[in-house]
């Protein structure tokens, strides 16, 4: 992979000092996203993801530090010539149709009449907008709006796509469609920077992730490097376990549920799980399913929250959270 940074932030900071919001939304954020990679920007609600994205897209001005796209500072509109942006909940001019909307954004990108028509044909084909080309956007569902938002982000075929929670609020079909679109853009060699808190999306799509917590970058790297890889617990489903064996199993693990002639137990270590399995098989039971439990992104965030609270008690975190 080419390792030229297409997006870079250097000590990027946003501090609010108004009555409604006070403190650091983003603090001293430095990271790089290389050309051609898919970078997941993770964090809980209010971690500062949207604030960071807004600074990159020129919507918010940094209090200090800088962000660069292709080496050009993001406060300069020219940095956005090669940028496509999809906000968390895209808002459009309700009185326009998809065709008019795409033409409008093409004009803002500086495309001429012929290029605008070509761009409309390309994007309407890619996102299946032909049948709704002349219907006003005010009549559209969430999924359709997300599609239009994605089409706007792709206007001018930019090399860098910034997607803020692109799958938020979509049904499974809509999520799948957006995931496929991201995958498609990845295959075309586009750089994609997207924020999310859904592990499955991140795992499927991202080359690297950055984790933001209370406005600070707390980890970067591959998702597997970020999450603890140790097996935390083991869940086992048994069939036909003798009643006499139940006290033995309950002593070693936690009974999660029983149904028909099945029982599901959770064991804290592989060793105890193995002992239980051996005893059960010896007594005629069958192991139906064995699932090792590793740390999930949700677990990771919970772990981070505990650390943050400990730090806060010690006074190491001195800023208050700003709602995004």
């Amino acid at each position: 992979m080419n390792t030229i940074a297409i997006l870079k932030t250097v000590s990027l900071t946003k501090k609010y000092s108004s009555i409604s919001a006070r403190g650091y939304a983003v603090q001293d954020l430095s990271f790089e996203v290389n050309k051609g990679e898919v970078f997941g920007f993770l964090g809980r609600n209010g971690a500062g993801k949207t604030t960071t994205i807004k600074m990159i897209c020129g919507l918010l001005l940094p209090t200090s530090g800088n962000a660069y796209i292709n080496g050009c500072e993001t406060v300069d509109p020219n940095s956005r010539r090669n940028l496509g942006y999809l906000p968390e909940q895209p808002y459009f001019y309700e009185y326009l149709t998809p065709r008019e909307t795409i033409h409008f954004y093409c004009k803002l990108k500086g495309l001429n009449v012929k290029e605008r028509e070509q761009e409309w044909l390309r994007l309407s084909g890619l996102l299946g907008l032909e049948s709704i080309a002349d219907i006003r956007l005010k009549n559209f569902s969430k999924g359709m709006r997300q599609k239009i938002g994605f089409a706007i982000a792709l206007v001018g075929n930019p090399d860098l796509l910034i997607l803020d929670e692109p799958m938020s609020g979509l049904d499974p079909v809509g999520r799948k469609h957006i995931r496929e679109l991201i995958q498609q853009q990845k295959e075309l060699g586009k750089t994609i920077f997207f924020s999310s808190h859904v592990l499955s999306d991140v795992e499927q799509l991202c080359d690297r992730v950055g984790v933001l917590s209370r406005g600070k970058l707390v980890a970067t790297g591959h998702i597997k490097d970020v999450l603890q890889q140790d097996i935390r617990q083991v869940e086992v489903v048994f069939k036909d376990v003798a009643v006499s064996l139940m006290p033995f199993l309950k002593q070693r693990g936690t009974l999660l549920r029983t149904w028909e002639n099945y029982v599901q137990f959770q064991f804290d270590t592989i060793l105890t799980a193995n002992q239980a399995i051996a005893e059960c098989i010896h007594n005629g039971a069958v192991v139906i399913e064995l699932t090792p439990q590793k740390e999930t992104l949700e677990d990771y965030f919970m772990r981070m929250q505990i650390i943050e609270e400990q730090q806060k008690k010690k006074g190491e975190i001195y800023y208050s959270r700003v709602e995004e």
């Binding site: 897209c57 919507l59 509109p77 010539r81 808002y91 001019y93 954004y105 803002l108």
Partner: peptide, 9 residues
Amino acid sequence: TIYTIIAQP
């Protein structure tokens, strides 16, 4: 509606 407009050049 300004979000996607200001994010243009």
